[in-house]
Amino acid sequence: MKIRIVVFLLFLNSIYSNTQAQKSNEISVSFYPLFKNSVIDFNQPAFYQIGINDSIQFDLLRFYISGIQLLNDGKVMWEEQKSFHLIDANENLLSILIQPPLNISYTEIKFNLGIDSITNVSGAMGGDLDPTKGMYWTWQNGYINFKLEGKCSLCMTRNNEFQFHIGGYQFPFSSIQTINLLAEPQKNIYVDIDLRKLIELNDLVNENNIVAPSKEAVLFSNQIASVFSNRKK
């Protein structure tokens, strides 16, 4: 009797798995950190010229993508469950896979840059949200949504370093941002992150170290969101 039940359950499971396979399609969402149209290799940091006599080097880029949705005419057609992804340029983790069903049409992808407030107050999490990933503040609770570190001759700091650890989930310093980009069914999505533009939007001479929730962090998070775009063809 027991064997019959096990066989029946296996049969049901195989039908379910096949149905899922037929309905799902893997689509990659890839991120390209750029400086003047060239992709930055964070494992071999190079200096890029800015202005006439100054230079900049990027050493670290890490950020969270969460709450991925696909939309058609503003209407949510699909949303990823447990949607939290750590993008880490130094570990070459610049691409994620999503699995929307095949039979939906959509024109847009929407995601958060950062971690929502509820998750921020929900205690210890695993996977990409594990605090061992180095994206969680310790002196004050909360996820760091976006980290960018490097050196620039404009920064009159120790070793000309700049450090942006952007986070904060509570009013008035919530720094989570929403990004909407174009998308087409069954086509991979390529996202440029124009770091040159981000640097140009900022005054690195005076603002080169943001490492706590603040109005400066909120402003910087807005600027980060503005440099995400669909890959230019």
Binding site: P131, K133, W139, N141
Partner: peptide, 25 residues
């Protein structure tokens, strides 16, 4: 009130340079 959840409380003393001077990783 810097810490919002009991689970995350140990991260502070573990990382504080004057307490345990380590990190969770």
């Amino acid at each position: 009130g810097a810490i919002n959840h009991l689970d995350m409380q140990p991260l502070a003393p573990i990382a504080n340079e004057k307490e345990m001077a380590s990190n969770i990783d």
